[in-house]
Design a protein around this nucleic acid. Structure first.
Lengths: 273, 273
DNA sequence: CCGATTAATTGATTTAAATCAATAAAACGG
DNA sequence: CCGTTTTATTGATTTAAATCAATTAATCGG
């Protein structure tokens, strides 16, 4: 049975043809299990009806589909409700640099070039696995923030968090070798998944769903997939990790943390004093 | 003649021993020539007396002095009024990664680890040349933003700008070679200086004051100073740049932009719609 | 379940940049 | 101006990672 599709949905589909409408019922902001980590973290409960109204709807993005490309007009901004999304940039020579791994609760799509409603995304976005998105109109963000300063504070706090991650990736590509960078990235994603979502993390085996290919890892860290493979294999031989069937298990957490110079404190959400 | 020093100054000096009190008169926020680019960009003129009161004072940081180290308790946040400051992180192996070049109008010092008043800076800060700083107490930032949402919006906008720069540095270290990264960095700094400040840029020769050593360049891009030297020398031989006596001239702007894949649009200040 | 595509694995070879090692040239503090 | 300390420069050698080239193992769509 076909799901009836709203006008707004059809308009959005013209802009973002890969999105699929969610089956109802959709999660309300007030009942949202990830709200405390997400954009509306600081907004008081009694105001949530109002933020709810700001939100367009929830949509599904199938695995491997592109949400938007660099340069596309940025009509929407997004909160990832469930799944994995990567933000990346393709260089002239065809090489790809992954800029950010988006996990549930993360907000994205607000980095644009240019001014006004016609500004374009500075990067592309693509799902690694089937993902659910909360969609918001970008052009109302500023007026929303003026009315509700908690929203602006939340955005600034999330921006600080994203910046910390980006700076650590810069440190990795700039001044760490392959083994160190890879150890760091695996731990970062492991901790983020364990902290941010209920599903994905399996307590029994201390493992997470890990949908990255070795090429994805390389494109995040600035290595070729061949070299990533060699390092991962070596780590498996050393019983530091197990990485197969899209599942990652951390066996030697202490050792990996030393190798990667990883401090779990960096994963903690940022809060303005 | 010694400048009389206030109580607040003496308290600050215990925390930041390298700062020197400015000779009066200090620049008032309302008369600040860089305000339109800085933190108080969106704050209406009639509110500036109030923001002025938030500000501690202006201080001098001599060339090569450290403002703070990673882990220091983050009492203050800063706007650079004049000069050049670098933010960096030192790894366990002693290597340094420069995270950001701070130019006049830029806001910094708010990236911290931990919560509350005792949180510590995630990075160190050091002056490349004698610099003037506007100092603010970090612990009042949130309440300021709640009272004046324009401040939060300004912070979010500046955060977007910083993020764009950080992502481009990541792209450079991750997926560009030495020649491409260096071309990009030189152009980025050239454009930022030309855009942000009156002094520093010399219209007659189309050159800027450029206080970085070749080691600084390397630590920003993830290269050794030896290799930076070879690439710079080659670029000089090709008449693309002139880089001597702490002054940088761009001779082959078009060619450099192609080499570095540099788009001046990325330098433009970000604005929320 | 099955052919087709995508991802992982491994070996051989090359290369961009690091490292090692000296000088030469600037900048700095009295 | 002068000795001292930083920076810049250049050559010789090494190395971490890239590239090239197959082959094997998974995953996917019907």
């Amino acid at each position: 049975m076909a799901i009836p599709q709203s006008d707004e949905f059809n308009i959005l589909m013209n802009k973002r043809p890969n999105l699929q409408q969610c089956a109802d019922p959709q999660t309300e902001c007030i009942a949202c299990p990830i709200r405390k980590m997400a954009l509306f973290r600081g907004v008081p409960e009694e105001e949530l009806g109002w933020t709810q109204e700001f939100r367009d709807a929830q949509y599904l993005l199938p695995a491997r589909e592109t949400l938007y490309r660099e340069g596309d007009i940025a009509h929407s901004i997004y909160t990832l409700f469930d799944g994995w999304v990567i933000l990346f940039k393709i260089l002239d020579n065809g090489k790809r640099q992954i800029l950010r791994f988006v996990l549930p609760g993360d907000f994205f799509g607000f980095q644009v070039n240019g001014t006004g409603a016609g500004a374009g995304y500075t990067h592309g976005a693509q799902a690694l696995v089937g993902s659910t998105l909360c969609v918001f109109p970008r052009t109302r963000l500023r007026s929303m923030m003026e009315k509700q300063p908690q929203l602006a504070i939340g955005l600034a706090e999330m921006g600080m968090h994203d910046m910390t991650l980006c700076q650590h990736h810069l440190i990795g590509t700039g001044r760490k070798n392959a083994r160190e960078s890879i150890a760091f990235l695996l731990l970062e994603l492991f901790y983020r998944v364990r902290m941010q979502m209920q599903n994905g993390f399996d307590e029994a085996t201390d493992s997470i769903i890990f949908p990255l290919t070795q090429e994805d890892i390389g494109d995040a860290i600035g290595l070729t997939s061949v070299h990533v493979n060699r390092v991962l294999k070596e780590m498996e031989r050393e019983e530091l990790i197990r990485c197969q069937r899209k599942r990652l298990t951390i066996l030697g957490e202490e050792t990996l943390m030393e190798i990667g110079q990883f401090d779990p404190g960096m994963i903690a959400p940022k809060e303005l004093v």
